[in-house]
């Protein structure tokens, strides 16, 4: 018993992400109510729920885009509740956006280079990167990893939607990510592009955990090991994909009801 308890508390201390009683109010509207989630390092989890269930608000609270009204957020044991977003990112948290949040005036290479620079030193450097700049090489590799080498030097404004979604993922994988939040990465992608996305997600190194918000169950349930269902800003159910899929309440609420 003793050793089990110790192991359990060790698991708790070693959580990648730990939310306790997180509530977020917009005026009188509670977008999140008393959300408590623990995610292990390397764990891959889907957050499902109809529109307005609070999924993106959950991401915004975790990254600090806006702070929770109450509750605490720990990232690898460290209380980051009051950290600005950039401090959390520098500790290994990453996110993508539901609507691509890129730098349209810059090239693909420069977008990825900025992402690499953002999580390393020399953000204020006045010296141009040279031929053998390590971060330039890191950016090159990342561009290649998301299959964008051919459009490396095009401005992002000129890219097709699917390419912008891939770049969105590349920006979130710069540096040494420890945990990534994917906000509907498959939105607007063709079936071929979805297959590529699944391949990118499943081929991520095992130590990188993530939470993915995804309406497409074919994508979501193929790339995760656990599922959290949200409804009206609350955690509604947690389990493995098969349980959630066959749960009658879930089907009533999500698959039958608000699914687009």
């Amino acid at each position: 018993m003793d050793s089990v308890a110790r192991r359990l508390s060790a698991v708790g201390a070693g959580a990648a992400l730990e939310l306790r009683g997180v509530t977020r109010l917009f005026g009188a509207l509670a977008a999140l109510t008393d959300v408590t989630i623990t995610v292990r390092p390397g764990e891959r989890r889907a957050v499902l729920g109809s529109n307005g269930a609070g999924k993106t608000t959950l991401f915004n609270c975790i990254t600090g885009d806006f702070p929770p009204t109450s509750g605490t957020i720990r990232f690898f044991g460290e209380d980051v509740t009051h950290f600005p977003p950039y401090e959390r990112i520098r500790r290994g948290l990453r996110r993508t956006y539901q609507i691509s949040a890129l730098f349209p005036g810059l090239t693909v290479q420069d977008n990825v280079y900025l992402a690499c620079r953002g999580v390393s030193r020399g953000r204020f450097s006045f010296l141009r990167p040279g031929q053998n700049d390590a971060l330039m090489h890191a950016a090159d590799n990342l561009v290649q990893a998301v299959h964008l080498s051919a459009v490396r030097d095009q401005r992002v404004a000129e890219l097709a939607h699917g390419q912008q979604r891939q770049l969105e993922i590349a920006l979130a994988l710069a540096g040494a990510p420890r945990f990534v939040l994917f906000d509907e990465p498959a939105a607007g992608l063709s079936p071929t592009e979805r297959a590529e996305l699944v391949e990118i997600l499943t081929s991520l190194p095992a130590h990188i955990g993530y939470i993915i918000i995804e309406h497409d169950m074919d994508v979501a349930l193929r790339v995760v090991e656990s599922v959290t269902m949200m409804h009206n800003g609350r955690i509604f159910k947690e389990g493995v994909p098969e349980e959630i899929q066959s749960d009658p309440e879930v089907q009533e609420l999500y698959l039958g009801g608000g699914h687009e």
Binding site: T63, P85, Y86, I89, Y97, L114, G118, V119, R123
Partner: peptide, 8 residues
């Protein structure tokens, strides 16, 4: 997005 890439 710049903040979400680690920039102040």
């Amino acid at each position: 997005r710049m903040a979400a890439l680690g920039f102040n």
